[in-house]
Every structure is written in structure tokens, then in C-alpha cells.
């Protein structure tokens, strides 16, 4: 399986993916400090509030996940390179599992790294241009790392929501990306529906897991060329 995951990476236009990742990272690293300074200074009242904000901002990786679904699944169908994979002595379920794991690992580690870098950047900027009240406490640090781990897992799961329907069934790039943008924004609007953002995130994660399950389970039927 490790070999298959590596090959998914080799097949990609790596320069494009690295460039995309760089852009996401740059935006998401500086966005928390920018947001506190320009849009919502309320999140600067404490490090706890800033950490909560950072967690929501990293939802941006849901969109990156959508973009990877496009590169790894939809483009392969559109360019017909998927038929090459189907001609190898590997079952379609195994091929799709490798693709899913590749996207999952990429999104997960990119989110983790960006979490750390955005935390450090926000802290350093706060040292030079104070935007957050007080200093980070040990409990803030623990909260940051637990939010980083849990957040990265949930964001990874959520990013798979468009996979089954738009990625494999419809093979449609634009709807898949629009779906990712909508999902990414959904927790921010949860209060309009009187639902806690955390509940929305958990529901979305379950939907992502269902999408992964259906994608692999139906690889032989829905995944047919």
C-alpha cells in the first residue's frame, strides 16, 4: 500500500501541488493575526480565543482537500489515465484506498504543519505588534496541541465530503470545489441555525467518513469508466 501511495504522488504534477500548498500555507499562517488585527479584535482578548480562531481558519484545508480530489480522482478520469491504473493487476478498491490515503496523509500533515506555523507566527507577531491580551499559559499550549491534533483529523475527514458524489460519481471539478467552499464555511454560519459550530464539524466529519466508505465500497461499480 505504501508503494501505491507513493506512486499516486509520482503521477501528480508535483510543481502545481507544491505551489497550491505554498499559497494555502502563506494565507493560513498569517490569516489569524490579520483577522484579529483587522476584522475581529475580540479574538485577541486572550490566547484561548486566538487558538479557537486558528482552529476555524485551518478549515481552509478542506478546500485544499477538494483540490487534491480533483487532481487525484477527477483529472485521472478526465485524462483517461485512470484506465491505465485499471489495467494493472491491482483491484480497484485497493487503488482507490491508496488514493484516499494519499489525500488524507497530505491534508493531515499539511494541516498539522500549518497549525504549528500559524501558532508560531501569531505568537511572534504578537511580540512585536501586540494583538492578543496576556501571555500563553501552559493550559493554552495544551489546548493548542489538542486542537491541532483533533482539528487536523476532523479537517481531513471533512475534506472528503465531495469525493463520492462529485469526485467519483459525477467527476465534476467545479461542483466539487464549490462543495468544498460551502462545507468550509458551514461551521461559521452554524449559529444562524442555533447549532454549535463543534456539532456542525462533527456532523461534517461523519459525512466525510461516509463519503470515503462509499467511494471505496463502490469502486468497482460507480468507479467504472
Amino acid at each position: 500500500m505504501t508503494k501505491l501511495i507513493q506512486m499516486e504522488w509520482k503521477k501528480l504534477n508535483q510543481k502545481t501541488v507544491w505551489m497550491e500548498l505554498l499559497i494555502y500555507m502563506l494565507i493560513l499562517i498569517f490569516f489569524p493575526a490579520f483577522f484579529i488585527k483587522v476584522a475581529m479584535p475580540a479574538f485577541g482578548q486572550s490566547y484561548a480565543a486566538a487558538i479557537e480562531l486558528n482552529g476555524f481558519i485551518q478549515m481552509g484545508y478542506v478546500l485544499f482537500g477538494g483540490s487534491l480530489i480533483n487532481h487525484v480522482f477527477i483529472e485521472e478520469y478526465k485524462n483517461k489515465t485512470i484506465s491505465l491504473s485499471f489495467g494493472y493487476p491491482i483491484s480497484r478498491q485497493k487503488l482507490f484506498t491508496a488514493k484516499v490515503l494519499f489525500i488524507a496523509l497530505f491534508v493531515f500533515f499539511a494541516t498539522i504543519i500549518t497549525f504549528i506555523l500559524s501558532g508560531l507566527t501569531t505568537y511572534l507577531l504578537d511580540q512585536f505588534f501586540p494583538i492578543i491580551n496576556g501571555k500563553p499559559t501552559t493550559s493554552d499550549m495544551l489546548e493548542f496541541f489538542s486542537s491541532m491534533m483533533i482539528g487536523s483529523v476532523l479537517i481531513t475527514l471533512i475534506s472528503f465530503i465531495p469525493l463520492f458524489y462529485f469526485g467519483i460519481w459525477k467527476r465534476a471539478v467545479v461542483p466539487a470545489i464549490i462543495c468544498s467552499i460551502f462545507i468550509m464555511q458551514l461551521p461559521n454560519f452554524s449559529l444562524f441555525f442555533n447549532v454549535k459550530p463543534d456539532v456542525v464539524v462533527i456532523i461534517l466529519s461523519i459525512l466525510g467518513a461516509i463519503s470515503i466508505f462509499l467511494s471505496i465500497k463502490t469502486a468497482e461499480s460507480v468507479g467504472e469508466i
Partner: peptide
């Protein structure tokens, strides 16, 4: 299928890869 080589319809290749990279990828699979 390890014992079968093929070109179906037209040669489907990874356009952003070199000729050798395309062959290497195929061989690795």
C-alpha cells in the same frame, strides 16, 4: 494482467512526465 501489454484507443500517457518517467511508473505498478 502482468503478462499483458496494451495500447487501447490511443496511448494514454502522463503528459507532464518525461518518456522515461512514464515507463518507470508503468514498470513500478
Amino acid at each position: 494482467l502482468k503478462r499483458v501489454g496494451s495500447i487501447i484507443e490511443y496511448p494514454i500517457l502522463f503528459e507532464h512526465l518525461t518518456a522515461l518517467e512514464n515507463l518507470k511508473l508503468h514498470c513500478e505498478y
